[in-house]
Design a protein around this nucleic acid. Structure first.
Lengths: 143, 143, 143, 143
DNA sequence: GTGGTCTAGACCACC
DNA sequence: GTGGTCTAGACCACA
């Protein structure tokens, strides 16, 4: 909490990748989540490039392989693609043509919602909170 | 691929604890989540008892210590308490008197919401889905 | 915290023995500490009798042997004696004729003081707090 | 009676972790208390690193998991943090901005004070003794 | 190399 | 019988 070991990278284009060395969440996952969140928020837009593994790793002061692992995961989940010149490019958002929500996603959502419910928050309070988080995400997008 | 190695325990009172040995999620966390979800759903009600570590572990075919760890975590997070007579008891739900949502919870929610957004689901679709999950959780409660 | 499983016994003479079934502290120790504290506070005075094991155990809703164990400990530590009629009697306070503080006591005190110090309380704050706790203990005594 | 089975670890930086295998106090708690005490004494200073679980365990001749448990507890209580690069680091002392003393701490203090009172030590003697223990703790700090 | 998880078997304190 | 502690050895995820 105190001297939170946070390390960051800021791009010219405006996006940002920060990690917290003290978090229990694996660094490679922090990078993934950071990218995904900013795609959702429209800060990272389709066609935009991410820094190379080496550049990002040295900027963050972490191992080259760790960044690579994050990128592999993002590629594998379809958020980005690796072009011929080895540059990571943000993909188009698939426009909700999916058949539906991923059951694994639903299960995770159910767990996190349950935590709130079992701590005494009612549905309305939760929905309002989620609405505000979603607005927070979407707000940047409209600009 | 694999015949999902699911193991379960069903109580007389109606609740259920199931785990999937093939899941990448740690077993002790699966137990925690299972309990928390059922507290949220009102299947596990305050005052109700959980089976002893040894009994549950043998029923699930897992190690005694693994159950113990799950229970310790639940105790530590305040969902249950350990009676000196040695029965784990579900706590009262604190009735939303909390000052607000835990920032860590909010951050996790933001990440999972972002995943949906960046896969092309818009806010409305997401809200509708969450509403239905919440109703699923709450529905059992009202009975 | 909620329905804190507290059980108690109140004597005609004014002293009180309460235990918390949810505490991680063993019941027999809770009884010992309760008695010792009240001796210190002068609520339990030399010559006074404690209830029989059976009576206290049934009043507290706990096992007979548990009370017995607490009493044995108190006897062994010299706080009380068992008279011919098997009644437990509070001993005289030895009037500080001890050679000094028990090293084990000092070590325990050092640990608990260290906890406060390492949480950012300075010596003065701690001394003031201890003074007030001591006054709380002694206040009843003077009456 | 027994040749007290004491085992220790001495760091280059000057701190020390010793345990007594014959003590009734759990080993993992001895480690915790040892660290907390030395934080309070200023021997362990914020930013300093503790040895890895494996290294300390082999130095102390105890099991790896036992050290691990001690460390987990220290992390959970906020005395240290675990860096993603996997080194346990001493936290900043929160500078007494706490709202007050933890009621559990107060209760423990009351019990230990009562023991002294009921053994015939008066308030002044106790305060003087505590003062000296506190000075013992703080003395190392000022250097 | 680190810590995290799981299994397994042992002993003890408590009730 | 219960949970708490300790030991021991295995595998995995992470960096």
């Amino acid at each position: 909490m105190k001297t939170s070991a946070i390390s960051g990278w800021k791009s010219q284009e405006g996006y940002t990748i920060t990690i917290d060395l003290n978090s229990s969440k694996p660094i490679y996952l922090q990078i993934c989540d950071s990218v995904i969140t900013q795609i959702a928020m429209g800060i990272l837009t389709p066609g935009e490039k991410l820094p190379s593994s080496r550049r990002l790793s040295s900027a963050l002061g972490i191992n080259y392989h760790t960044v690579n692992r994050a990128y592999s995961q993002l590629i594998q989940e379809g958020y980005v693609t690796l072009d011929r010149r080895k540059r990571i490019t943000i993909n188009e958002i698939p426009e909700g043509k999916r058949s539906g929500f991923d059951p694994i996603w639903v299960e995770r959502m159910k767990v996190i919602l349950s935590e709130a419910v079992s701590k005494g928050f009612n549905s309305d309070m939760i929905m309002v909170k989620i609405q505000s988080i979603l607005e927070d995400i979407e707000s940047t997008k409209d600009e």
